[in-house]
Amino acid sequence: MSRAPLSRACAALLRRDLVLAWRQRGDIALPVLYALIVATLFPFALGPDLALLQRIAGGVVLLTVLLAMLLALDGLFRGDLEDGSLEQLVLSPQPLAPMLGMKILAHWLTTALPLIVIAPLLASLLHLPAAAMPALLLALLLATPLVSLLGAVLVALTAGTRRSGMLLALMLLPLCVPVMIFAAGALAAAQQGLPWTAPIAWLGAALALAVVLAPLACAAALRIALDA
C-alpha cells in the first residue's frame, strides 16, 4: 500500500489535462480563431489609417487576448464538474490548492499560450512597431497567467451555478482593470521609446503573489461551490 506523493499526483493531473486538450484540439483553435476575427474587425471599424492603427495596436491585441481568454475560462471546471472528476479530485488525499494550480497551468498552456504565439501576427496585422514587440510579448507572458489565476477563482465560485458566461465577465472585469492598465502601460511606454520595465515589474510582482494565493483562494471557493 502506498500513498501517492504530491509530485506524482501533480504530474498525473497535468498529464491528464494536456492529453485531454490534445484529444480535443479543435477546442484549442477556437479562442485563437476568435482573437484573429476580433483583431481583423478593428481596422474595418476604425478605417485603415496607419498612424491610428499603430497607436491602438498594442491595446487592441491585449484586449483581444483578454476576451478570448474570458471565452475559454468558462470551461475550466465545467467538464470535470459534469463527469464527477472534480469530486474525485476534491476527495483525493492530495491538498487541493496545488492540484488546482496544475489545472490552471494546463488551462493556461492550452488556451493562453496559443494566443501568445499568434499575438505577434495580430500585432503586425495592426502595424504595431517592431520595437514594441518584446514589450508586448513580455506583458502577455505575465498578464495572461495572472488573468488565468484570478479567473480560476471566479470560475470556481460560479461552479455551482447554471451557465454563467455573462456573470463571469461582470465579476472578472474589476479584477482585470489593474492587469490591463499595467500591461497597456508597458506597451505605451515601449511605443514611445520610454523605459517600460517598471509596469512589467509590477505585473511580475502581482503574478508572484497570485501564483501563491490564487490556488488557495480557488480551493476555498470550490469547496463553497460544491457544498450544495
Binding site: M1, A4, A9, L13, R15, R16, P93
Partner: peptide, 14 residues
C-alpha cells in the same frame, strides 16, 4: 488512462 490518473491521485493498493 483514467485508472492511471486515479492511482496518481489516490495511491496504489498492493
Amino acid at each position: 488512462e483514467n485508472l492511471r490518473v486515479a492511482i496518481g491521485l489516490y495511491g496504489r493498493r498492493e
